[in-house]
Simulated scan of single mutants.
Amino acid sequence: MDKANQDNNLSFQPLNTSNFGDFEYLFGEKGACEGCWCMQCRLQADEFEVGRGEGNRLAMKALVESGKIPGILAYNNNEPVGWCSLGNREDFPRLPKSHESLLIDEQTWIVSCLFVRRGWRRRGVKRALLKHLIAYCRTKGAKVLESHQCNSDFSKYPDAFAWSGIEKAYEAVGFVKVDSVSEKRPIMRYYL
């Protein structure tokens, strides 16, 4: 067990119908960030805007009820403290494609969001979530994890704009930079 897990008593569960209430509790009334409910990258821009708030929450709930596992919840004891969204590239039509995306197939999974509850940020929860995600994806047959996150100079951004995590957290668990969408959004990969 890594240090973050020991210190924070973290455990992890895939999001499903039985723990959807924990996801709602974690995201709060505003859906984490302005009614997103972790649907921004999963919907086209106009669909996302129309559904902002309750519509996006219902879209995520329908996704879970369909049997898909759209992410992993992190818990401290029984309290949800973190979330990691994941899926295949086709699950995220709004994410930009890297030059290496030409090599992507169904065995490449995308990490689109790492959200940590206020009061638990900067305590190793994102790194612990990423470590768990690597192990989880390996058991599901994934060959590559790809992520689009903020660069390491986190001080330039409010917490809400670091929803995908920062480069430093990904580097700490073995992701490598393969491309950039912009100076602010490097694309990183972990080869399983």
Rank of each mutant, 00 (worst) to 15 (best):
G21T: 02
K156I: 07
G28E: 09
E79Q: 14
N76Q: 07
Y25P: 00
N19S: 08
F92T: 08
D7E: 13
A169V: 02
L95E: 14
V178P: 07
L133Q: 11
R123W: 13
V50M: 06
Y191P: 01
N16G: 05
R122I: 00
S164E: 06
C113H: 03
G124I: 03
K131Q: 05
E54S: 10
E90C: 09
H148F: 06
K156F: 11
E90A: 14
L86P: 04
K143V: 10
K184F: 08
P158K: 15
L58T: 09
D46Q: 07
E100G: 11
C36F: 10
F12R: 15
L10F: 07
R52A: 14
R138H: 06
R127I: 07
V181P: 04
R121C: 10
E49K: 08
E47A: 06
E65R: 15
Y191M: 13
K30F: 01
D7P: 04
L103Y: 14
W109C: 08
N8W: 06
A135K: 10
R185Q: 04
S66V: 13
T139H: 10
Q107W: 11
N76T: 11
L114I: 12
A135S: 05
Y157A: 08
L43S: 14
C113T: 03
V111S: 04
R121P: 11
A142T: 09
N19V: 14
N151H: 06
E65W: 08
G31L: 11
S182Y: 04
E47N: 05
C41P: 03
Y75L: 11
H132V: 07
K177L: 01
E106W: 04
D91M: 04
R52E: 08
G53N: 03
R122M: 10
K30Y: 08
T139N: 10
Y75G: 14
C33E: 05
W83V: 07
R52K: 15
R89K: 15
E183F: 12
R127Q: 13
H148P: 00
N88L: 01
E54L: 11
W83K: 10
V176M: 01
A74K: 07
P93H: 12
R185H: 03
R52L: 13
R121Q: 15
K68T: 14
V176H: 00
S182V: 05
R123S: 09
Q107G: 10
A128E: 10
V111P: 00
S85W: 08
G87T: 03
V181I: 08
N5D: 02
E90M: 05
N5I: 03
F115K: 12
P93F: 12
D91Y: 01
S85P: 03
I104W: 15
K168V: 01
S98F: 15
